[in-house]
Design a protein around this nucleic acid. Sequence first.
DNA 1: TATTGTTATACTCTATAACTATA
DNA 2: TATAGTTATAGAGTATAACAATA
Lengths: 149, 149
Amino acid sequence: MSGDEDLGPRLSGRLHYLLKRAQNDLAALHEELLAPIGINAGELSVLLLLDAREPESQQQAAQRLGVDRTTMVALIDALEGKGLVERRPDPADRRRNVIELTDIGRKTLRRATRASDQAERRLLSQLDGAETEHLRSLLRRVAAAPGDR
Amino acid sequence: MSGDEDLGPRLSGRLHYLLKRAQNDLAALHEELLAPIGINAGELSVLLLLDAREPESQQQAAQRLGVDRTTMVALIDALEGKGLVERRPDPADRRRNVIELTDIGRKTLRRATRASDQAERRLLSQLDGAETEHLRSLLRRVAAAPGDR
DNA sequence: TATTGTTATACTCTATAACTATA
DNA sequence: TATAGTTATAGAGTATAACAATA
């Protein structure tokens, strides 16, 4: 993207532009820093979710992440193909697959989290620690908004 | 997306998640509030840019907005089809099209800006005025980062 | 009948490659 | 040769519809 203020203050101050820009930049940093680990930012989200909520069915994971269950199929396919998660039929309800992290998945998660931390630090290199946490807390409150859709 | 803290703090506090979520929610609000006006958020960005920098060639506009020139062709096609902008061959360099807002385009821009202001207010309904401006200023500084590519 | 996972398909967004007209 | 606009095409990413297995 171009510098900054070639756009005029009305555009460069709009939240649509600012959020898209921050997200694009962070996505590029994640692509660069996660590449050696062999996963992408979306897969990291799934690993983080499983680490917090495991064991979890594909449907539950999809709902929590806000994606369609068909999207989750592809995500789990990819992660399972890399040996990071395992599908196991739920004995209590055999329509369901329970998804679990493997040991390799847990190790990969730790490495990927560190890489993602670094991506965040580079994105926010202009902010000090207090400002970084303030930004995070403001965004958290935005995400928690009641009528947010 | 699901509530909030079903995800665990490690995921729900990650910037990747927070930014994507804020952007998704804002996109949904824009879709709703801009629909009666007949444009989308991307087209609003082009109108805002032209209003600040007009007259501008398609290539210049694309570079400033950070999209490919082929993407700009489609954007201008749509806006021209609605009578909001006009292409005019540049007499000084007839390879170029100069793009200008029409009167209807300027009126539409004003209405769309108000709708987008409302979308932002709804997204940020949990923040007071000072917090809103603080968030905007933090995001501006993130966007202005030097090595952010 | 309803739900879970799956597959096939389609849609949106955006980029790359190739063409044309101009320079 | 190089550039601006255009077109055709392809690749992500994600959704909808239909199907099989199970409840």
